[in-house]
């Protein structure tokens, strides 16, 4: 990592909105949603205030991880069009402030989770933050093209944390949801990586399309989609869920597979004209929302 000198504007105290921006609120919505679904699908009862606190802690933990990620990658973000306007690369905030904010938020979210729910859930939250910052951001992302496959594990933790906040342990269903999110991440991110490839290339990040080329990326998207489809249908076969999840998973996964197949077959090399890739990326987000929502509906119907 190289140290950059930022404009003198950093003497100005950062706007509070920039602290919020550091936590990547938009990414947080998916994390909060999957965490909430894990919590609602868990057997047993949790006081609504404690449930709210648990979800708040998951959101703050994700925000802390995102903040530390941007603290570490400020120089890389400065080279990419998509990220150059983030608070650190744009010089609107002192790096040290971002570090303190990220570390403080990490401690706060983990301790609050432990006090409000249980220390097992707090432990899993801590592991997910450490995993995202150290294993993914610092170690793997700059070194291997399979970075997001392993990094995806960090994003797959929330349903486990939500479940653990209620039960104090891990069950088969949250593990199945973990696997689903884990194998969903590669096709989701590589679809994005295909159409923002010039950005990643400029920043020197070894994303798969940059290192292995587009053909290989399309093959890998197809490969991981197949595993993801198996993971999506596993809860049905294991009888962990009911008819609602079963039908949503079947229909939703069929559409996902069809879109992934279009991406696999495409030979387009101009990022501006990559329509199937954009479609798959957008649909993949909706897909995860649908499947997790269906898990909760199922649980309530069964109850």
């Amino acid at each position: 990592m190289t140290m950059l000198t930022y404009p003198a504007a950093t003497l100005m105290p950062a706007h509070w909105r920039d602290f919020v921006a550091l936590t990547k609120p938009r990414v947080m919505t998916l994390v909060v949603f999957t965490g909430l679904c894990g919590l609602l699908a868990a057997p047993g009862h949790i006081h609504p205030v404690l449930a709210f606190t648990a979800i708040l802690c998951i959101a703050l933990g994700a925000g802390a991880a995102a903040t530390l990620n941007q603290w570490w990658e400020a120089d890389i973000d400065a080279k990419m069009k998509r990220t150059a306007n983030r608070p650190l690369p744009a010089g609107r905030m002192d790096r040290q402030a971002a570090l303190h904010f990220g570390v403080g938020l990490s401690f706060f979210s983990v301790i609050l989770m432990g006090v409000a729910t249980n220390w097992f859930a707090a432990g899993v939250l801590l592991v997910s933050i450490l995993f995202y910052v150290f294993i993914y951001t610092i170690w793997l992302k700059p070194r291997t093209a399979q970075n997001i496959v392993i990094g995806g594990a960090a994003g797959a933790f929330p349903p486990i944390i939500g479940w653990a906040a209620v039960t104090g342990d891990v069950g088969a269903l949250p593990v199945a949801l973990f696997m689903l999110t884990f194998f969903w991440t590669p096709p989701h991110f590589w679809a994005l990586a295909l159409f923002v490839r010039p950005d990643y290339a400029a920043a020197g990040i070894p994303m798969l399309p940059v290192v292995a080329g587009e053909r290989a990326t399309r093959r890998q998207i197809w490969f991981y989609t197949a595993i993801m489809a198996a993971a999506a249908l596993a809860p049905v076969l294991l009888r962990l869920t009911g008819i609602v999840y079963g039908s949503v998973a079947l229909a939703g996964t069929a559409v996902f597979v069809a879109l992934a197949f279009q991406v696999y077959r495409s030979r387009e090399t101009d990022p501006a004209r990559m329509k199937p890739e954009r479609r798959l990326f957008k649909y993949s987000i909706l897909y995860l929302f649908l499947l997790f929502g269906a898990v909760v509906v199922d649980r309530w119907l069964l109850a």
């Binding site: 100005m12 105290p13 950062a14 706007h15 509070w16 006081h47 205030v49 404690l50 606190t53 708040l56 006090v115 409000a116």
Partner: peptide, 27 residues
């Protein structure tokens, strides 16, 4: 900026005070 940050910090602290009270009651 200092003023807006102070206001936001104050609101957050107020929110946390209420939250901790609610957690205590729930516990």
């Amino acid at each position: 900026r200092q003023k807006s940050r102070s206001i936001v910090t104050g609101l957050l602290l107020g929110f946390l005070a209420i939250l901790f009270f609610a957690i205590t009651l729930a516990k």
